[in-house]
Amino acid sequence: MFIINCPFCGERDQSEFSAGGEAHIIRPKQPTELSDDEWADFLFMRKNIKGIQFERWYHAHGCRKWFNVVRDTSNDKIHAVYKMGEKPPIK
């Protein structure tokens, strides 16, 4: 049970949030111009990384804001939290 530091509300229990999967997968601006392969890549393929992952969380039972989290999926340590549109504070 993590504590997530919502950039809008502060530290809250994980149960207030829902996970939104890998971050920075940008929806193609011109989907119709992609091949089936490229579209499948956007739609389904994931890094599913073991280690530092950049991911999205949604403060569903709170401010209803989506934001980004940097979490190590091998030990669940959260290294940083940042708003949508911001650059990741760590690489």
């Binding site: 829902s18 949604y58 569903a60 209803r64 989506w66 949508m84």
Partner: peptide
């Protein structure tokens, strides 16, 4: 609602 918020806030 959460799906719409998702598109709105992230895409």
């Amino acid at each position: 609602l959460s799906k719409l918020e998702d598109y709105l806030q992230t895409e």
